[in-house]
């Protein structure tokens, strides 16, 4: 079987995380990662990157906005909104 090159592996990382690879591709990726430290680190960095981006999610609603939206809803229910 053809050995996966590093550039190819890098292109497959997202598919790999999403479990969107064929069994053969997946096997190739895992085999490569077992022996290539650079790619292993790259994959680890991608995981950190994803978690850092996920960390941007936060913040709850400021109450005025919520109240404003509920007021809009009441207007809509009364048929005042077209």
């Amino acid at each position: 079987m053809n050995r996966l090159r590093c550039e190819e592996l890098i292109g497959l990382v997202t598919d790999y995380f999403d479990d969107a690879l064929s069994a053969e591709q997946r096997h190739g990726v895992e085999e490569h990662l077992a022996v290539c430290r650079g790619c292993k680190q790259h994959v680890a960095q991608m995981r950190v990157t994803i978690r850092a981006v996920q960390g941007l999610r936060e913040e709850s609603l400021p109450p005025p906005t919520r109240e404003e939206l509920l007021e809009l809803f009441r207007e809509w229910r009364r048929g005042e909104l077209k």
């Binding site: 430290r37 650079g38 790619c39 680190q41």
Partner: peptide, 20 residues
Amino acid sequence: IELTPGTWRSWEGDPEERLL
């Protein structure tokens, strides 16, 4: 295409903690 392998540094430990 991204860098050649081998220049990738490990983020383990301190860098990872800082980013997260």
